[in-house]
């Protein structure tokens, strides 16, 4: 069984801000880490591997330094990985990103199951998984909270819906996105770290892909355009209270009375 896990490097401490005076994006504390939701996807894959003999691969897309998270995945027990990285892919929106990853996935050859995290912490859109499945023409199940059974030609999972849990069986090849409650990700192991420290991380660039039309990638393959970025509007109709705790509580009680909560 072949499993591919899609992972992404995200800013470690978020908070990119717009400088009010110059309009320039400020970059403070942009260290990077693996998207925390992806750890659950990797763990899901490794668990399946341990119980059913499988090969687990990871794929990521990003700048060259995103190779760090592939190394981290190796330390968790992933067998192989690759990074999709090329300037041609710059400025990709969800559609172009999903399409690019779909090209990268096909480089791994035959696969049975693709696992994605529920969403990333930087984009928060939760769209790449379903769009990737569409480009690969395979079914997908989002919000998987439990792997019930891994069978030879299909997998049974519990999908989390707002008012119900739907147990479904889906044939391979398919894609699932997993919730963070699905398991407890293991920590990278030191033994694995030593064992994999020289393991290669292949880079896939535009020239490696089957589709050689540049217009399907990066900003050219992106139907959406960001036409303006700005700081969230401040609410002008506001009051600031600065006082001793006693006075603050008095004012708060009066306000709650005024709003009829007391």
């Amino acid at each position: 069984m072949n499993i591919i896990v899609c992972i992404k490097q995200v800013p470690g401490t978020s908070e990119v801000e717009v400088d009010q005076e110059t309009g320039v994006l400020k970059r403070e504390g942009i260290d990077s880490k693996m998207n925390p939701y992806d750890l659950f996807a990797i763990e899901t894959a490794i668990k399946i591997k341990e119980e059913n003999s499988a090969k687990v691969s990871v794929i990521s897309m990003g700048p060259p330094q995103a190779a760090e998270i592939i190394r981290e995945a190796y330390m968790m027990g992933v067998d192989e990985g690759a990074l999709i990285s090329d300037r041609v892919f710059g400025g990709a929106d969800v559609l172009a990103t999903s399409y690019t990853i779909s090209q990268g996935v096909q480089k791994f050859g035959q696969y049975d199951l693709i696992i994605c995290g529920k969403q990333t912490t930087d984009g928060d859109t939760a769209q790449v998984g379903p769009e990737l499945a569409e480009f690969l023409k395979i079914p997908h199940i989002a919000n998987v909270k439990k792997i019930v059974e891994v069978k030879e030609h299909s997998i049974i999972v519990d999908m989390d819906m707002p008012h119900a849990v739907q147990t479904v069986e889906v044939n391979y090849p398919c894609l699932i996105t997993v919730e963070k409650d699905i398991n407890q990700p293991r920590l990278p192991s030191f033994k694995r770290k030593m064992a994999t420290k020289n393991q290669a991380i292949p880079i896939y660039s535009f020239n490696d892909f089957i589709d050689q039309n540049e217009n399907n990638y990066g900003i050219n393959g992106s139907p959406t355009r960001v036409i303006r970025i700005f700081s969230p509007e401040a609410n002008n109709d506001r009051e600031m209270w600065k006082d001793t705790p006693g006075v603050l509580v008095d004012r708060l009680v009066n306000k709650l009375k005024e709003l009829k909560y007391v």
Partner: peptide, 23 residues
């Protein structure tokens, strides 16, 4: 932006190769 909507909308956007802006 429900469980179903977040599954269905991206799928359709990719099928029509068009833009989707989430949330």
């Amino acid at each position: 932006g429900t469980t179903v909507g977040r599954s269905l909308a991206p799928r359709m956007a990719a099928r029509f190769r068009t833009g989707l802006t989430a949330d």
